[in-house]
Amino acid sequence: MIYLATFHWGWLLGSLLLGFAMGWIAVVQRGQGVSKVTSRWLAVLAAALVAAALAHVIPGRPGYWLDLGLVMFALYLAGCTVGSWLRAWVVSGHAPAA
C-alpha cells in the first residue's frame, strides 16, 4: 500500500482534490441525489470490489487496476467528506451542522 501511495502520489492527490471539490459543491447543490436503495447497492458493490482486491482474486494487470481504482476512490471519498464538512462549516457561519 505504501508502495502504491508513493508510486502514484500525484494521481492520488488528484483524486483527493477532485473529491474535495465535489464535496465542496455537494453541500449547496440542488440536484437530485442518489436514492437510498441505489446507494446501498453501490455500497455493496464497493464492498464486493474491496473484498475481491483483498482476496487477490483478480490476477495480473486488472488486479493492479482494481487496487489503484479502489485507492483512488477511497481518497476521493475522503476528499468529499472533508470538502463537504468544511463547506458546511463555512456556510453555517463557523458552526458545522452535525
Binding site: 465535489m22 441525489g33 442518489v34 468529499c80
Partner: peptide
Amino acid sequence: WSSKWWPG
C-alpha cells in the same frame, strides 16, 4: 451530501 457526490 454524499448522495450528491456521484457526479465527481
